[in-house]
Amino acid sequence: MSIQHFRVALIPFFAAFCLPVFAHPETLVKVKDAEDQLGARVGYIELDLNSGKILESFRPEERFPMMSTFKVLLCGAVLSRVDAGQEQLGRRIHYSQNDLVEYSPVTEKHLTDGMTVRELCSAAITMSDNTAANLLLTTIGGPKELTAFLHNMGDHVTRLDRWEPELNEAIPNDERDTTMPAAMATTLRKLLTGELLTLASRQQLIDWMEADKVAGPLLRSALPAGWFIADKSGAGERGSRGIIAALGPDGKPSRIVVIYTTGSQATMDERNRQIAEIGASLIKHW
Results as ranks from 00 to 15, higher is better:
24 H>Q: 10
25 P>S: 07
26 E>Q: 09
27 T>R: 07
27 T>H: 06
27 T>M: 10
27 T>S: 09
29 V>T: 07
30 K>E: 10
30 K>H: 15
30 K>R: 13
30 K>N: 14
32 K>C: 03
32 K>G: 00
32 K>T: 10
33 D>S: 09
34 A>Y: 05
34 A>K: 04
35 E>M: 08
36 D>H: 11
36 D>I: 09
36 D>C: 13
37 Q>V: 06
37 Q>K: 09
38 L>D: 03
39 G>V: 10
42 V>W: 00
42 V>S: 00
45 I>S: 02
45 I>A: 04
46 E>I: 10
46 E>H: 14
46 E>P: 05
46 E>G: 03
48 D>L: 02
48 D>N: 07
49 L>Q: 01
49 L>P: 14
52 G>L: 06
53 K>E: 01
54 I>S: 01
54 I>P: 04
55 L>P: 11
55 L>D: 01
56 E>T: 04
56 E>N: 01
63 R>I: 11
64 F>A: 11
64 F>L: 13
65 P>D: 11
66 M>E: 07
67 M>A: 11
67 M>P: 07
67 M>K: 09
68 S>A: 07
70 F>P: 07
70 F>E: 04
71 K>E: 05
72 V>N: 03
74 L>H: 12
74 L>F: 10
74 L>I: 11
75 C>T: 07
75 C>S: 11
75 C>P: 09
75 C>D: 10
76 G>Q: 01
78 V>P: 10
79 L>H: 10
80 S>Y: 09
81 R>V: 01
83 D>C: 00
84 A>N: 15
84 A>T: 11
85 G>V: 02
87 E>G: 11
88 Q>C: 07
89 L>C: 12
89 L>I: 03
89 L>M: 08
89 L>P: 02
90 G>W: 14
91 R>N: 09
93 I>C: 03
93 I>R: 14
93 I>F: 10
95 Y>I: 00
96 S>E: 05
96 S>H: 02
96 S>R: 05
97 Q>V: 11
97 Q>R: 05
97 Q>D: 12
98 N>Q: 07
98 N>D: 08
99 D>H: 13
100 L>Y: 13
100 L>F: 11
101 V>A: 07
102 E>V: 05
102 E>I: 09
108 E>A: 06
108 E>G: 06
109 K>L: 14
110 H>P: 14
110 H>I: 00
110 H>G: 12
111 L>C: 05
112 T>S: 11
114 G>E: 04
115 M>R: 00
116 T>D: 08
116 T>A: 14
117 V>T: 02
118 R>F: 11
119 E>Y: 15
120 L>S: 09
121 C>D: 10
122 S>C: 15
123 A>W: 00
123 A>K: 00
124 A>N: 04
124 A>Y: 15
124 A>W: 08
126 T>V: 04
127 M>K: 07
128 S>I: 03
128 S>Q: 07
129 D>M: 12
131 T>N: 13
132 A>L: 13
132 A>Q: 15
134 N>P: 04
135 L>D: 01
135 L>T: 01
136 L>P: 03
138 T>F: 00
138 T>S: 08
139 T>V: 02
139 T>C: 05
140 I>V: 15
140 I>Q: 11
141 G>I: 00
141 G>C: 02
142 G>L: 14
142 G>R: 08
143 P>I: 02
144 K>T: 08
144 K>W: 12
144 K>L: 08
144 K>V: 13
145 E>Y: 09
145 E>W: 08
145 E>R: 08
145 E>C: 12
145 E>I: 14
146 L>M: 00
147 T>A: 14
147 T>K: 11
148 A>N: 09
149 F>I: 11
150 L>A: 05
150 L>K: 00
151 H>T: 07
151 H>S: 10
152 N>W: 12
153 M>K: 14
154 G>T: 03
154 G>K: 08
156 H>F: 07
156 H>Y: 02
156 H>P: 04
157 V>Y: 02
157 V>N: 08
160 L>H: 15
163 W>L: 08
163 W>Y: 13
167 L>Q: 09
168 N>R: 12
169 E>F: 02
169 E>C: 01
169 E>L: 03
170 A>H: 01
170 A>K: 01
172 P>V: 04
174 D>M: 02
174 D>Y: 05
174 D>K: 04
177 D>K: 02
179 T>Y: 15
180 M>I: 00
180 M>Q: 15
180 M>A: 01
180 M>N: 00
182 A>Y: 06
183 A>C: 10
183 A>F: 10
183 A>R: 07
184 M>E: 05
185 A>E: 07
186 T>H: 07
186 T>N: 02
186 T>A: 06
187 T>C: 01
188 L>N: 13
189 R>C: 15
193 T>H: 11
193 T>V: 03
195 E>L: 07
195 E>T: 11
195 E>S: 12
196 L>N: 11
198 T>S: 13
203 Q>M: 15
204 Q>C: 08
204 Q>A: 11
204 Q>G: 08
206 I>P: 11
207 D>M: 08
209 M>H: 11
209 M>A: 11
209 M>V: 13
210 E>K: 13
210 E>F: 08
210 E>D: 12
213 K>S: 03
214 V>I: 11
215 A>T: 14
215 A>G: 09
216 G>E: 01
217 P>Y: 13
218 L>T: 04
221 S>C: 07
222 A>P: 13
223 L>D: 10
223 L>N: 09
223 L>F: 01
224 P>K: 00
224 P>Y: 00
225 A>R: 01
226 G>A: 02
227 W>F: 12
228 F>C: 14
228 F>N: 00
228 F>Y: 15
228 F>R: 12
229 I>V: 03
229 I>F: 00
230 A>P: 07
230 A>W: 13
230 A>C: 10
231 D>A: 10
232 K>N: 15
233 S>I: 08
233 S>T: 11
233 S>R: 03
234 G>R: 04
234 G>I: 13
235 A>R: 11
238 R>T: 06
238 R>I: 00
238 R>G: 13
239 G>N: 06
239 G>Y: 14
239 G>F: 12
239 G>A: 09
239 G>L: 04
240 S>P: 04
241 R>V: 11
242 G>L: 07
242 G>R: 05
242 G>A: 10
242 G>M: 05
243 I>C: 13
245 A>S: 07
245 A>F: 10
246 A>S: 12
247 L>M: 08
247 L>K: 09
248 G>Q: 01
248 G>P: 05
249 P>K: 03
249 P>S: 04
250 D>S: 10
252 K>V: 01
254 S>K: 15
256 I>W: 10
258 V>S: 05
258 V>Y: 11
258 V>A: 11
259 I>W: 10
259 I>M: 14
259 I>V: 10
259 I>S: 04
259 I>E: 06
261 T>C: 11
261 T>D: 11
261 T>K: 08
261 T>F: 06
262 T>R: 11
263 G>D: 04
264 S>G: 05
265 Q>G: 11
267 T>K: 04
267 T>L: 08
268 M>G: 12
269 D>R: 06
269 D>Q: 05
270 E>L: 15
272 N>I: 04
272 N>A: 10
272 N>Q: 08
272 N>S: 05
273 R>V: 12
274 Q>Y: 13
275 I>G: 11
276 A>E: 10
277 E>K: 13
277 E>F: 13
278 I>Q: 13
279 G>T: 08
279 G>S: 07
282 L>E: 02
282 L>Y: 01
282 L>Q: 01
282 L>I: 05
283 I>D: 15
283 I>C: 15
283 I>R: 13
284 K>M: 09
284 K>F: 01
284 K>L: 02
285 H>F: 14
